[in-house]
Amino acid sequence: MNLLIDARQLSKTFVLHQQGGLALPVLSDVSLQVAAGECVALTGPSGAGKSTLLKALYANYLVASGSIRIRHQQQWVDMATAQAHEIAAVRRHTMGYVSQFLRVIPRVSALDIVAEPLLEWGYSAQEAQQQAGAWLARLNIGERLWSLPPATFSGGEQQRVNIARGMIAPRPILLLDEPTASLDAANRAVVISLMREARQRGAALVGIFHDEDTRDAVASRIFQVPLAHAGHA
């Protein structure tokens, strides 16, 4: 088995200093291993820590304890202890994140937003733009929109731009937070095919999919995020 994610004994407690130091345990002692070609769907009741776990894997949230080893260019990098520039390198080359919300510089066109990860991989501007166009077309973003900044796009269009940007570079690991949340059936089907194709090329996927049909269509395994017990900080 070709392991790409090896997270062990993760614990995370939010301490809200504005609320008198209120401590909210969200993860306690969570371990998750994911191999190449797998798609793991995180499940559990709302507030169980699915999103927190996903963000912890990406080092967007800090864990209080545990290790998050990521297979990065033939080496293991522990995201829980890595330096900022090492985490940046892992994110650039190895681990992508598709969130529900697009956050970009206001004036940049949709095409450039999608092409950017490929430029960081060293593709020429022409090749990157060509591929970006192909991704946008596949996700049903009409060519007349490509040169426009997505700020004025509909929620579903923005999410599809976000998916194209998050998936265009063939990174070995993809983290997906509700990638189909605001999409219609036709576009959901496109995103499902894209996720399956990523698995076929050997990527490891970890995602939160509220929609059961999507989950059944892409997930190879369910991981129930265990409820955190109070007092474990």
């Binding site: 809200l16 200093h17 504005q18 080092a59 967007n60 949230y61 800090l62 900022a84």
Partner: peptide
């Protein structure tokens, strides 16, 4: 000190939490 998105999404220090909120 840390990654910008981590500090904005999961600030640890009371002052960072105040700033972000």
């Amino acid at each position: 000190a840390g990654l910008t998105d981590q500090i904005l999404d999961d600030p640890q220090h009371p002052y960072s939490q105040l700033l972000v909120s």
